[in-house]
Write a protein that binds this DNA or RNA. Structure first.
Lengths: 141, 141
DNA sequence: GCTGGGGTCTGTAGCGCCTACAGGGTCAAG
DNA sequence: CTTGACCCTGTAGGCGCTACAGACCCCAGC
């Protein structure tokens, strides 16, 4: 079924499979400059190597930590261009950490309100629905 | 500067101002069926009333609680069509609450990793950056 | 009456981040 | 030689807005 999977070149599906990326995402990341364009075979097929695989894994792990594509680009630039990237990289991470904490705070606010109204709704046999009332009431949260 | 603001009709900007919605969002919600098309003046201007204002506020508060537009549509249908909407409404809310809790869990995972790596990075004078190493390392989280 | 600066109208494009599809080419196995 | 699985490209769609361009309208002041 498959051909050269060691030392030669990976095709797109194989790279996607190895990294866990979606097939189309690989092409998308190339288009937006997160993955360098690989060499092509005579017939135009992309041929990836280990460096591509590592880079794509880097991007995917950064995405798992919630970094935006722009932040990932910044981190990749630091990896590529700087010899002492830690200060700048940790600044990017600290900013992102603050974003995440703000999101958590916001979600917890929503959770608190919803937990309360769902409890008030109970088995749903009330004629006045606490959820709907809450949404109609002025600035209740 | 302004004209009829009581009992007559609200123009779009006035409705937006009262509810806190963005001007364009009002039109968008009408387009996607969350706000009913208001009557128009002779020259084609939208003319809103108190019912529109209440409905738009409902949508905005539901959005503040993180409901998707599809969920908001469902809640509005319950408000409009059913006399005993509480059971179904609280089911929508409970599902959404579960979504929110899943998001919180996910964000806390990210927060935990980032907190650790940012602490390890310290003042950024290290030559090996813990953040970058983490992103290159296999499945560390 | 005319002008100017606000409002309004419409349709459309853009954002971030993919995901999916159509319509074609290529390649190896049976 | 055909079949089926892969590859290529470009483009559209989805969420939830937000913003703009180009036109029209309305009112106050001169």
């Amino acid at each position: 079924m498959h051909h050269q999977n060691l030392t030669k070149g990976l095709q797109r599906a194989e790279l996607a499979r190895r990294t866990g990326a979606n097939l189309e995402t690989v092409r998308y990341y190339e288009k937006v400059g997160l993955l360098p364009p690989p060499p092509r075979t005579a017939s135009g097929y992309r041929s990836y190597d280990g460096a591509h695989e590592r880079r794509l894994s880097f991007v995917l792990r950064a995405r798992e930590l919630g970094f935006s594509l722009e932040e990932v680009r910044a981190l990749l630039r630091l990896v590529d261009e700087r010899d002492q990237p830690c200060a700048e990289a940790s600044r990017v991470a600290a900013t992102h950490l603050a974003d995440i904490r703000a999101k958590i705070t916001d979600l917890k606010r929503m959770e608190g309100v919803l937990k309360t109204v769902v409890a008030q709704c109970g088995d749903g046999t009330r004629s006045d629905c606490p959820l709907i009332e809450t949404l109609f009431r002025e600035k209740a949260f």
